[in-house]
């Protein structure tokens, strides 16, 4: 294991019936960094995410988290190690209130919740912490609102609050800014910056100005392969990256 690397993938490959969505991707995410994964549509970014969190099983390759091989683990067990992901489409529990959404994550502290004979009153011990987390993302006044009724940007904020409730060491954010207005983008970007203080973040993001301002390291994917890696200045000048994005020479 390289020094300071928290999540590493070697030769990560996913084949769908002869089509390589991700091929031979190696990735090293350093502890404490914000690492962005960018690339044109269909480059395999989300597939990569699904492989790293084991929502898909890789055809080939090896994934290690904090030196531990997690290639064969189930997605729930990976989450239990402190490697928690978000989803491209906002992932809230729509018919639960904002408070209940966060509490579902806090409830994990009890271990498994198979106690169907107990009243949910035992969960009220998590209410104060849930309110703190909601206040942290600017949702204090929405705690009794059903998550499905929240505006889009607020849903993303709620999703982040829910993720943070697990106090994960590393977050994988799949397009946190997708479909957001300007104000929301700025608010969420500030939030990501703030929560990155003592955490590692790997994110897929299309909004390049957000990527430029937040990321320490950028990996560019194209057609399932790593095209370039480095900080924004390096990557943005790479001719191959420019070509992949603008499509020069593909006339």
């Amino acid at each position: 294991m390289q020094d300071g690397v928290i999540l590493a993938a070697e030769d990560l490959t996913k084949e769908f019936k002869g089509f390589y969505a991700v091929e031979g991707v190696s990735l090293n995410v350093r502890k404490g960094q914000i690492h962005a994964l960018i690339g044109p549509n269909g480059a395999g970014k989300t597939t990569c995410f699904n492989l790293l969190t084991k929502f898909l099983s890789p055809t080939r390759g090896r994934i290690t988290y904090k030196g531990q091989d997690i290639t064969a683990m189930s997605p729930a067990d990976i989450a239990r190690l402190g490697l928690v992901r978000s989803f491209q489409i906002s992932a809230v529990f729509p018919h639960l209130t904002a408070l209940e959404n966060v509490r579902i994550a806090l409830q994990r502290q009890r271990g498994d919740s198979f106690d169907f004979w107990r009243s949910q009153k035992v969960l009220s011990q998590f209410d104060d912490r849930a309110r703190e987390l909601l206040a942290d993302v600017g949702l204090a006044q929405f705690e009794t609102t059903l998550a499905g009724d929240l505006p889009y940007g607020r849903k993303r904020a709620l999703e982040i609050a829910t993720t943070l409730a697990l106090d994960p060491e590393m977050l994988l954010l799949d397009e946190p800014m997708a479909g957001m207005g300007h104000e929301d983008v700025d608010r969420i970007a500030a939030l990501i910056k703030r929560i990155s203080a003592d955490r590692t973040i790997l994110m897929v993001e299309h909004n390049l100005s957000v990527v430029a301002s937040l990321s320490d390291t950028i990996t560019v994917l194209a057609r399932g392969k790593v095209l370039a890696e480095g900080d924004y200045a390096t990557v943005s000048k790479d001719p191959r990256v420019v070509e992949a994005y603008i499509g020069a020479g593909h006339g």
Partner: peptide, 9 residues
């Protein structure tokens, strides 16, 4: 999927 990502089996 979200419940899984929160660590629920």
């Amino acid at each position: 999927p979200r419940a899984i990502s929160l660590g629920y089996r």
